[in-house]
Design a protein around this nucleic acid. Structure first.
Length: 427
RNA sequence: GGGUCAGUGCCCGAGUGGCCAAUGGGAUCUGGCUGUAAACCAGACGGCUUUGCCUACGGGGGUUCAAAUCCCUCCUGGCCCA
């Protein structure tokens, strides 16, 4: 696989420090790294682009290094952040790193069987926490002027604002990341750093440090474009601002599948390029399908299936697809028990006794109890607005719910709005 | 340490003694139209035992018949000076 042509086609290259690096990667035998911020115990859809990029490199015969930011995580990357970030404590950080490690091993081959392309999983805490302050200031700090550090776009917004500032701690972050690249360059002959476009400033600090200290310009950087939705927010967050996580416990395969299935038309061609390994012809024909038959959403379907299969496996992808079809195309009351359970398997559920229900329960109380409404006032509002459904049938007035609504003698599906489901199971 | 400005609902931000659960924008939510999109349109958006009551304008205390608004104090942050 020719990295240069493939990445150009996919639009994965935003900026490069040196165009020739794409040819080196195409030939193979190069070591490249990406740093992962341990701000949570799971990676999310946004970071999947970077993970897949490492995988693409590995497939082309290069050695990928995934660097967990155990040391830099203690500081916090200020790049393009509006405000200073709270520091993570040690246990939390360790937990996050462990979570991230196990996820990465699903995408990259860290086994010796991969030969020269065997991936490495490193943690910069291993060297950063041992670094002495005076050594660091003399050996690394001396190579940069505050003038150039202040000039970085990534911190400019913080310096310009008059209501918040930037702490010295966060300001030094870029030096630590530069040092990481230097270490990897010396210890592992790593010559390429990848990252999102927000990492450009940090990456170039690294290539510069390598040049100054080793005297060789063997460090190069590639950034990939930032993926923004039509409304300007980052791709990979739900409407409520939650990340779409790669961890099935946090974001179920079904939810991820739905998220991708709902990708808007304008964005889908890009997503197919970034998030799948589909060949160029297939992608082009899906581009056409969006134009000629948008209502079929063939591209979105393929995207959802491909990505969920990558992250959670083929079976999970098939299940998610089937569940979605059943949920949206059939009357839920006519499904058999097994299908019904599968369809609502992702929805939260709660138990209720038979006697409670036969006595008749107020729909307002039911909504609050199922956590579909955060207060009774809100529950009443949903009812007034016609946003409440029992077994997919709209409930229009504040009426009591009783045993008539039970499916298969023990289930009841309560829905609020288009997609908020809750399963009530009779005990 | 000194000076100074600020802290309002999810976010931004108006309000500077009663007409304030607090203008406006954004976000969000519900409905409509659709393709389980986008855009667009309409409505909602602190809680409750809902013609009323309770809780809320950084925390605490005070003045007043009445405070988001005035005073004191503390906390937090910005900027300037040292």
């Amino acid at each position: 696989m020719n990295i240069r042509d493939d990445w150009k086609f996919r639009g994965l290259v935003h900026q490069v420090t040196d165009d020739a690096v794409l040819d080196r990667l195409s030939k193979g035998g190069v070591t490249a790294y990406i740093g992962f911020d341990p701000t949570a115990s799971s990676l999310h859809l946004g970071s999947l682009i970077q993970i897949l990029n490492l995988r693409r490199l590995q497939q082309a015969g290069n050695r990928p290094i995934a660097l967990a930011g155990g040391g830099t995580g203690l500081i916090g990357d200020p790049s393009f952040k509006a405000v200073e970030r709270p520091l993570l404590n040690d246990e939390q950080l360790q937990e996050n790193i462990d979570g991230i490690r196990s996820q990465l091993s699903r995408f990259l081959d860290f086994s010796p069987a991969a030969g020269k392309a065997q991936g490495l999983l490193l943690n910069n805490a291993d060297w950063l926490t041992k670094l002495s302050l005076t050594d660091f200031l003399r050996d690394t700090g001396k190579h940069f002027t505050v003038n150039q550090m202040i000039a970085k776009d990534s911190v400019k917004s913080r310096l310009d604002r008059d209501d918040v500032g930037i702490s010295f701690t966060e300001f030094t972050y870029m030096l630590l990341q530069a040092y990481d690249f230097l270490r990897l360059n010396i210890d592992h002959d790593c010559t390429v750093q990848l990252g999102g476009s927000d990492q450009w400033g940090n990456i170039t600090m690294g290539t510069e440090l390598i040049r100054k200290i080793t005297g060789k310009s063997s460090g190069a950087g590639i950034t990939s474009p930032l993926l923004l939705k039509a409304d300007g927010t980052k791709f990979g967050k739900t409407e409520s601002g939650e990340n779409v996580w790669l961890d099935a416990e946090r974001t179920s395969p079904f939810q991820m599948h739905q998220y991708l299935l709902n990708a808007d038309d304008a964005m889908t061609p890009l997503l197919l390029r970034y998030f799948t390994f589909l060949d160029h012809d297939t992608i082009r024909s899906l581009d056409d399908a969006i134009k000629s038959a948008p209502q079929e959403r063939a591209a979105q379907r393929t995207l959802a299936n491909e990505v969920v299969a990558l992250v959670h496996g083929e079976d999970a992808a098939k299940n998610a697809e089937r569940a979605g079809e059943a949920l949206f195309s059939e009357e839920i009351a006519s499904l058999d028990e097994k299908t019904l359970l599968q369809v609502v398997s992702d929805a939260p559920s709660s138990k209720m006794t038979r006697s409670e229900l036969s006595a008749g329960i107020d729909i307002v109380d039911l909504l609050v109890r199922c956590e579909l409404a955060s207060s009774k006032g809100e529950a009443r509002r949903f009812l007034e607005q016609g946003g409440v459904y029992i077994n997919n049938q709209r409930v229009d007035a504040a009426q009591a719910v009783d045993t008539k609504s039970i499916l298969h003698d023990r289930y009841m599906v309560v829905r609020r709005g288009r997609k908020q489901m809750h399963l009530v199971v009779l005990a």
